[in-house]
Write a protein that binds this DNA or RNA. Sequence first.
DNA 1: ATTAATGTTCAGAA
DNA 2: TTTCTGAACATTAA
Length: 278
Amino acid sequence: MPELPEVETMRRGILEIEGATIEAARRTPCNKRPISIKPRIDHLSRRLGGVKIASIDRLGKRVVLHLATEDRLIFEPRMTGLVLIGDPPTREHLRFALSLSNSPVEELRFWDRRGLGSITLLTNKQYQEKLRDGRLGPDALEISLPELIRRFEKSATPVKVAFLDQSRVAGVGNLYASEILHLARVHPATACNRVGRAQWQRIHQRMKEVLELAIEYEGSTLSDGTYRNALNDPGRYQNEHAVYDREGELCPTCSAAKIQRLVQAQRSTFFCRRCQKR
DNA sequence: ATTAATGTTCAGAA
DNA sequence: TTTCTGAACATTAA
């Protein structure tokens, strides 16, 4: 499930289409219910035809094509979406393609097994509003320690749950939240307003370390095998997970306690009772 | 053969 | 204002 490192890997994987010209956009043959594409595909294709891709950015867990027209084309993978230039994992779940010219590859593809992902074309103004209206916080790789503290410290929400809220900080999801709190030695159920300054410092530092290392490893491909990089190869960070999906295993840090699973906000949290204190 | 679990985001309720 | 719940889905494990 793509979080910041997986989406950043997708972004890096398609950088070679920077400077390419979009010829057309189309839905690909797929017998499943269509994914959300806004505006509708014929309007989208008309607005994109002949337009150059100026740069490729990332906004939290979204891949953003910055177009020469100043419009932004946003790919939101949600649970199982992939932005690809190579062959997709299956033909039947290929949802969308951009045909390209002046490019080393002829197509940019969006594949999505579950179909919860979306593709949205926004004008520059709409895009800036999306940033300004507070729905998306600063990127997890960019946020400063004081800003992180300011956005979390007053809340009574458990710190693990707060990290899933993309309006506080964008990019951390269920998997990396557990990993970050484990390395920072903070109990996931601690209310944000009970987290101390030294703990925030460790959370901030570990957050950047974990995300950057996971990017180097091209993200985490879990047992369902869904997540792939832009060439359809699996990531390697899953081998480095200390706690995520390792309930009952010995904690790699203390080698004394078993990793526990806890349900918070209807999702699994993994942690070590011995290493992570409130 | 059902049912639960998976996890991101949004709309709408509390 | 803030926090919580359910729904959107497809697939797999139980």
